[in-house]
């Protein structure tokens, strides 16, 4: 059954916000869940996080950053277009409880992944401070949405908004300079960011930093093992045992290495794609 794109909006260069019809996803998604999409008959299956749900429209929201063939193709789709397959919700939901004071750290489109988690933690009565990071002002998405849950601290690599620096600088500022104490943290963003956020969290004495891993996946149902990561010395499948894990236990370097397995092929596919579609600077 094809899934109609009900709304689509550009958030930043190469970052697009979609509302897509998928009744089963809208009905059953919980914070932390993701979906797998396949755009068309020749398409690859790629995982994307459920950023929000709209049960009355039987639809869900996803925020996509174009990085290669499939995500470019997706971001080039228009309102009214149809995505061939949407499977989900998949993965284990986030562990939402009343922890007390919670630190949320989001980078790039990881901010979108963090959004439903933030919403649920807020509803569960936690006090929240969010650090939102991006390369420059344009990439710090969903600021207004996060303000609803508590204070936000912004960092940009180039200093165009908020603190100049990276999210770990803001962590240090909050804990060391302001003397904030946190009962738990979530860090979601590029793998390298999550790795350093976890290291920093440990150094700053935060009891636990949850991270949401994004290894390469195929089926998303535990049938292929492509998504395997080492956590606490054991092999875990991110699609069914995660995607959220205790950031202190993850073998980060192995994960980053595994994510480059298909790099050559991905580049080849992307180059061919660009030759076919021409100028994409508008995206």
């Amino acid at each position: 059954m094809p899934h109609k794109i009900l709304r689509k909006r550009k958030l930043a260069h190469l970052v697009h916000d979609f509302v897509v019809e998928a009744p089963l996803v809208a009905e059953h998604a919980k914070p932390g869940h993701f979906i797998v999409v396949r755009l068309h008959e020749h398409g690859e299956r790629i995982p994307l996080t459920i950023a929000d749900v709209y049960p009355e429209e039987k639809a869900f929201r996803m925020i996509v950053r174009a990085v290669g063939k499939t995500t470019y193709e997706l971001c080039m789709m228009k309102e009214g277009d149809e995505i061939l397959d949407v499977v989900g919700p998949l993965g284990k939901p986030s562990e939402i409880e009343k922890y007390g004071r919670v630190l949320l750290i989001g980078g790039g489109v990881g901010i979108a992944t963090l959004h439903p988690i933030a919403k649920a933690l807020h509803e569960a009565g936690n006090e929240i401070i969010s650090i939102l990071g991006g390369r420059s002002a344009e990439y710090v998405i969903m600021q207004e949405e996060f303000k609803k849950f508590g204070e936000i601290v912004i960092t940009t690599d180039d200093g165009t908004l908020g603190m100049k620096g990276v999210v770990t600088d803001a962590m240090e500022y909050l804990v060391k300079e302001r003397g904030e104490k946190f009962d738990v943290a979530w860090a979601v963003g590029p793998t390298i960011m999550m790795k350093f956020a976890a290291l920093k969290g440990k150094e700053l004495g935060i009891p636990k930093v949850w991270v949401s891993l994004n290894p390469i996946m195929v089926d998303g149902t535990g049938m292929c093992g492509a998504c395997r990561v080492t956590v606490g010395g054991e092999i875990k499948f991110a699609c069914v045992d995660g995607p959220e894990f205790d950031g202190y236990q993850v073998e980060w370097d192995e994960l980053m290495r595994r994510m480059t397995q298909y790099k050559k092929k991905e580049e080849e596919a992307f180059k061919r794609f660009l030759e076919k579609v021409g100028d994409v600077s508008w995206l």
Binding site: R45, M223, G225, K265, A269, R272
Partner: peptide, 25 residues
């Protein structure tokens, strides 16, 4: 795993990459 290798090739038709988007190495 054989499951990943065979799924990529059979279900996702990676043997026809780049006609089909799923790669295989």
């Amino acid at each position: 795993s054989a499951s990943e290798f065979l799924t990529r090739v059979n279900l996702m038709r990676a043997y026809e990459f780049p006609e089909y988007d799923t790669p295989i190495i």
